[in-house]
Design a protein around this nucleic acid. Sequence first.
RNA 1: GCGAGAGUGGCGGAAUGGCAGACGCAUCAGACUUAGGAUCUGACGGGGCGACCCGUGAGGGUUCGAGUCCCUCCUCUCGCACCA
Length: 831
Amino acid sequence: MQEKYFAQETEEKWQSNWEVDGIYKVSEESERPKFYLLEMLPYPSGRIHMGHVRNYSIGDVMARYKRMCGWNVLHPMGWDSFGLPAENAAIKHGKDPAEWTDSNIAYMRKQLKRLGYSYDWDRELSSSSPEYYRWTQWLFLQLHKNGLAYKKAQKVNWCPSCMTVLANEQVVDGKCERCDTSVNKRNLEQWFFKITDYAQKLLDNLEKLSGWPEHVKTMQHNWIGRSEGMDIEFRLVDVDGSLTVFTTRHDTLWGVTYLVIAPEHPMVDRLIAGKPNEAELRAFVADVISQEDMERTSEEAEKIGMFTGSYAVNPATGEKIPVWIGNYVLMEYGTGAVMGVPAHDQRDFDLAKKYGLPIKVVIAPEGTEGEALDAPSAAFTGAGVQVNSAQFDGMRSEQARPAMAEFLEQKGYGKRAVHYRLRDWLISRQRFWGAPIPIIYCDKCGEVPVPESSLPVMLPKGVKFMPTGQSPLLDCPEFVNTTCPTCGGPARRETDTMDTFVCSSWYFTRYTSPGSDTEPWSRRKADYWLPVDQYIGGVEHAVLHLMYARFFTMALHDIGLIGVEEPFTRLLTQGMVLLGGSKMSKSKGNTVDPDEIVERFGADTARLFTLFASPPERDLEWSEEGVEGCWRFLQRVWRLVAQCVNAGVFSDGVRGAAMSGATEGERAVRRAAHTALKKVTSDISDRHALNTAIAAIMEFVNSLYGLKDDVIATESGKKVIGGAIEMLILMLAPFAPHIAEELWADTGHDGSVHLVAWPEVDESALEASTVEVAVQVNGKVRDRIVLPASATEQDALAAALMSEKVAAAVAGKAVRKTVFVQGKLLSIVVG
RNA sequence: GCGAGAGUGGCGGAAUGGCAGACGCAUCAGACUUAGGAUCUGACGGGGCGACCCGUGAGGGUUCGAGUCCCUCCUCUCGCACCA
């Protein structure tokens, strides 16, 4: 066996063997417990990038490890293949989106296969294929049937570059999440999913997701934004009707000196009609509405307002208070109207100061009841003691709150209410390359769902793309014009398509039943595999994909289509791959091409480096030298095994991993093997600390190099070394599957190393006859002494006092106390 | 402002409250070589000839013992942010 390893030919050989033998295919018919391991569905942009390599390498280690541990592992791969880039390529280069997408998929599939991931490729799916989007449409119809999909006109986010509307989650800092263009608002009639019905459940279930990172749960928690308070009704004075405000501080109700409503509020017209300055008011309203959201809602933006000329009555005090229109009140949140409490809310305070509105203190900081009534210089927003609040005076505000709620509800002035920041999910897109929304409009029958038997509503071929801001399907008469399923009369199809996040909200369920063409999935199979036991992907989807998929799963559960409520039991969010401190990206030009790394070093090296350089959850700085280091390590492993093979370690057959060991050297080899195994096993399964698992294997290899020459000289030593080498290959298998497979064969084994059981730690092998113990005197390490492993505290102290250094530190003082940590440390306190 | 996370050698990073810096990279020295950008051996936080002293963002505290736990700050990253 030669001492140099040539990765490329070996890797390709095993990749084709694996494929021919189908060793990663799984079915439900298994005695083994199931484990569903999934990495987030990639978009087929054209080529894979290092972020993909890292994501899938992490997943592949876990999949291979779990498989070796005896689990029936489902590990599939597919494509999130609808979306804008395909359409942009169509517009720019005249390519058919389907062809562009398919050729990207073909290339990327080849890249993934070249990296040797253990996917069950028979389950591959592509969300843009009619076989898949047929069921996306079918699921839309189920949601529609159950009142969870509806159409309404609303002011929505519009990305002028993508020429489509966006969901709230897809707007980051006022910019399009995808292309970074500033979004603006348009009033459009759009399709929504009623995710707000699940706001409370999405929030409550977070507590059950103990396998999710805290920061992701926090982000979802904040995004859902539950707040508890009261809706309080203020009767209007000269106008019919009332205004309802939402407040979390009804303890400040007696301090309300005015109301403020959003310029978009439906009551605005009635409140300003006929007022002397009506024209001026209308101009003000129009001006505020026309402002971009960012300039209107940024914290620095000045609070401006205008008196409507109308009044309302504070139900608590009976006082007549003015109704204002303010730029800082948002129609989309709460009721679009707020009560102005300048003494206890900084925004209200700013407005009151600016326009000379009265300020009335009703909460005094503890111990300042008398003086607090003077004109404050800023709003006091903390808790305190009620003043000026009729029968509630003197109560602490926290206690006043429930008492007041009770009082207000009894009087019929308001009711306790919960509002969420979460809005319904806007799913329609004015683009071609998505799943058409299966709805038909008929002049007679109105909005009619496409019958399930007519699915899929296919995307037409040969569409002309013109970025007009309307779906290209509109210019496609053969698509638009149809007949009404109900009355048979002429009708038009919906031309908007679905947000691609809809496609990725259920794909993990489709993987359980690939190719099913009579139903989206087999209930039996889905029940067997779901939920996903371990999900891996980037944190950028914390409130996008991960929340949409949770909503979808809950909804499908409640409709009765699926057995689980939460799709992902454990979640690992892997960090980004950086080069020169910033995320690799084409636009910055700081990318490293996986193909090039595979070509130079092989897939095993590429995988190993992305796993070794940093713990999975943290960002990883790409380093050419680091990659070379991993390559050197694999060569070092190869050389070690080759030298053993050439020395005849395996000449009389395989070793079966069991090792006895009589001499000190043999025991040391055995100890090194099982120490490494113990660390690697717990690092993979408990902590997902793949970087330290690899470090432990490296240490193991280093110690084998040191021990081998002595031990290998005898027949018994050969057996011990052989067993250790087998363990090394098994431990390496999840991380560097190709070289492990080749070495497994070269050491005389039949069959794939990836089907061999993960070895078990032999605790007895870990025991050493002697241990080194650090000796501290008053907390400082003074010496290290070697003791028999069985030494007691007394033995240790006696031995320690024999040490010159320890004796010097103790000299002349009395030993007051000792602390002994078996095998590690002796702490002597003197004084 | 609110919430979450992080600050450790020249670098990436290790350390159930128990010998700080595992493992790797870079660097230096040596060996082997016609050669070495291969490989092997060794050194590698700072100071000091030395015994020793100092050292995990800063300052306190708990403890026989603190990178780790507690308190007060500082810096950075991420998320939310006029949400009533």
